[in-house]
Design a protein around this nucleic acid. Structure first.
Lengths: 243, 243
DNA sequence: TCAATATAGTGTCTTTATGTCACTAATATA
DNA sequence: TATATTAGTGACATAAAGACACTATATTGA
């Protein structure tokens, strides 16, 4: 029998040394998407320190165990630091952990997918010199830090699925938006054109949008401006759009 | 300018001390489900060490950075240790991290949902005295270690969704199984009876099962035994069953 | 002013997939 | 050999998406 088995919990905890075993490094990273100028964009930051200094990557950082109480606080801090606001949509994506992805050693990152309106953080991004919205179509030509390309691809895939059975992508738009805008964003995510009749019908039947009474005027007939209804984030259509 | 900004990466890495900052503890945990005697069961183990000694919880453990190369190896090691086999279905569920869940301090667990046949590990479980299949209906009366109850609930919810649009739950059955067995498992997960006509039709139309030519005989008409087709795990129905 | 163009939005029929339920099929048992 | 029991099918109803032509409302420029 070991000493430990006869020790009580209080004594065990008092004697516990968290550094007695080597532990992985732990970070959080955000794949933050928006929609602007007709394209899907992801927020990247230029790394100002080693390793992979100078490369672009996702906003993220180590868990500071003295400053945050949980993972959600940590990721919100990262996002607020770069954009100035809290993301209206935030969802945990996946965790990636191995002894290769970070040259400093065994590391785990807990990644998140987030969405926000371009306008909501436009000023801040312009002033934060190291942060930049990048058109996702330009990513193939870039070399990102760590496994951040993989995380972005996983985030896009998740958003594609959501575009098939929900209107979650609407969180990448301004608070007031039109059906054609939302549909185009879904088309970008899904990768094929959608039938506007089907797209509108299901959303209207489920009452997911509120009419603002306002219109967006461009070329052609003005489009009605809507905002998200209260429970729109949770709603899931029983049937997917064609993939 | 700091010293670091003029250092090259090799020098930085050489001087890097992973213990210079406090880091969370990192574990993996498996919510491993099976189907036996007409009920859904989850594998629990009795904790043999502090903290929460004596309580039951999910199979899991710390990442041993010297023995495993990635998270998948770590979770597979945990599952193989308790069951003797590799789980035929394994999917990352979510990560939970805060400074409350483990009394030893800030900790992160990367949780997984896994499925296996009861028969595949029956002998091993019987001999591993500290591991036990527990009917999920009995869980409300138990107090589990850490936040493991939350993880199990999240795993069940994930499986419920999968039951609505896939036949992934089939991995909780023996290699050869009948339609009535699979349907009953789906009914347990979804929490309501299903139309056998709808249930069979969609699976047959998608060619997700192979007829073994054998039958399971009980009371009444014998049922045809099937096995999963090669691509059954990936398949998603375009429409969900009624919830 | 008014035709041309462009984009938004609707009417309506078709297609696809699930829901419902009665019916037939194959076994064990009394 | 009738009955009970469970497996599996036929056939029509219903729900929701696909298709696509049509109407509506704006701008623009002869």
């Amino acid at each position: 029998m070991s000493e430990q088995s006869v020790m009580d919990e209080a004594t065990y905890l008092q004697q516990y040394d968290p550094k007695q075993f080597d532990s992985p490094l732990v970070t959080v990273d955000a794949a933050l998407f928006t929609y602007h100028d007709g394209v899907l964009k992801v927020l990247l930051v230029e790394r100002a320190s080693h390793p992979e200094l100078g490369k672009w990557g996702l906003p993220g950082g180590f868990i500071d165990v003295h400053r945050v109480a949980d993972l959600t606080q940590a990721i919100n801090g990262v996002i607020e630091d770069k954009t100035g606001i809290t993301a209206p949509y935030l969802e945990q994506l996946a965790s990636y952990g191995n002894n290769q992805r970070d040259k400093r050693g065994w590391s785990v990152t807990v990644s998140y997918t987030a969405l926000m309106a371009y306008q909501a953080c436009e000023v801040r991004i312009a002033t934060v010199a190291d942060a930049q919205w990048v058109d996702v179509e330009q990513l193939p030509e870039m070399t990102l830090a760590f496994d951040h390309m993989t995380i972005i691809e996983a985030g896009r895939e998740r958003l594609k699925q959501k575009a098939l059975y929900s209107i979650v992508p609407a969180y990448a738009l301004a608070e007031e938006f039109t059906f054609p805008e939302l549909q185009h964003l879904h088309e970008l995510l899904i990768g094929k054109p959608l039938q506007k009749r089907s797209f509108r019908r299901r959303i209207e039947q489920a009452n997911l949008l509120e009419d603002t009474g306002k219109f967006r005027k461009d070329a052609g007939r003005p489009a009605i401006l809507y905002r998200l209804a209260a429970d729109a984030e949770q709603y899931r259509f029983v049937r997917n759009l064609e993939d």
